[in-house]
Amino acid sequence: MDAIDLRAAGTALRDSAPLVHCLTNTVVQTITANALLAIGAAPAMVDDPAEAGEFAAVASAVLVNVGTVQQRTAEAMRLAARTAGEVGTPWVLDPVAVGGLTFRTELAADLVELRPTVVRGNASEVLALAGAGKGGRGVESTDSPEAALETAQELARRTGGVVAVSGPVDVVTDGERVVRVGGGSPLLTRTTGAGCALGGIVAAYAATTGDPLTAVVAAHAHVALAAEAAAGLAAGPGTFAALWLDALDAVDGDALARADVRSA
């Protein structure tokens, strides 16, 4: 991955201030909104079926996260994803805990058929979404990103988009190219909503970066760099969460160009 591309992605995001339409779970709305504000984007939490499709048509990008999905929000997610596809708005699917519960698994399967620009999840979620696994332990993965790589590539070719698998080293693929993003901190896994906030950050980068693979890599690198900076100052997960938001704000294009990013 060319460092210049990542620098340009970071600059484009700050210059554009994309409006990210978040249909996300109730546990993570605040941290997702704050993370988007910290990177220079504008969040909106519009999840009523009466408005979701209409708002998706004017947003810069859409995030669909099925973490605490209900019948009402499932309808809104379908409407928003369908509208995003029709008008060319990039959208991200975060299949939280898919595989273990029937309702969300069936919803996620329907959403995949609407061809998300990006699928972002942990290894167990990606395997389950592709029909190659039964999911993890709730929101926790029981598989490694490398174990899910082949399935992720197949899923990316099926959707025509990008699939990102989070883990100690994140794996990102568009079905042909494979990029690994290192860094980060174990404290991310002890911060409620950090992974879900990453989905919103991916959407923001997808709105402002022409190549979806570059966008997703830049988002993952942004989160990893901020986590490293925050972990160096934090006393534990409580202080880490606040310091991580500060560090997200501090990451710029030059920092992204120095990220631990490796192309296969």
Rank of each mutant, 00 (worst) to 15 (best):
A8I: 06
T11K: 12
T11I: 13
L13K: 03
A17H: 14
V20N: 06
V20A: 07
H21N: 03
C22M: 08
C22Y: 00
L23G: 02
T24D: 01
I31Q: 05
A35D: 08
L36V: 04
L36A: 09
A38V: 03
G40E: 01
A41S: 12
D47E: 15
G53C: 08
A59G: 08
S60D: 14
Q70V: 07
Q71A: 15
Q71S: 13
M77Y: 02
M77Q: 11
A80P: 05
A81V: 05
R82H: 13
R82I: 00
T83A: 14
L93R: 07
L93E: 05
D94I: 04
V96F: 04
G99W: 04
G100N: 09
T105K: 11
E106S: 14
L111D: 01
E113K: 14
L114T: 07
P116W: 00
T117Q: 02
V118A: 14
V118I: 08
N122D: 00
N122A: 05
S124E: 00
S124H: 00
V126C: 03
L129A: 04
A130V: 01
A132K: 13
K134Q: 13
G136Y: 01
E140H: 13
S141N: 06
T142Y: 03
T142I: 15
P145I: 04
P145Q: 02
P145K: 05
E146H: 13
L149Q: 12
E150W: 00
E150T: 15
T151S: 11
Q153S: 12
E154K: 15
A156D: 11
A156R: 06
T159W: 05
G160E: 08
G160C: 05
G161A: 10
V163F: 09
A164L: 03
S166C: 12
G167A: 11
P168N: 12
D170G: 10
T173Q: 09
T173K: 09
G175Y: 09
G175V: 02
G175M: 10
R180E: 11
G182V: 08
G183C: 06
G184M: 05
L187I: 02
L188V: 07
A194N: 05
G200P: 10
Y205F: 15
G210H: 12
A215C: 11
V217R: 02
A218V: 06
A221P: 06
V223G: 04
G232L: 13
G232C: 10
L233F: 00
A235Y: 11
P237M: 09
T239L: 10
A242N: 10
A242F: 14
A242L: 15
A242Q: 13
L243C: 11
A247Q: 14
D249A: 15
G253N: 07
A255Q: 10
A257D: 04
A259T: 02
V261R: 03
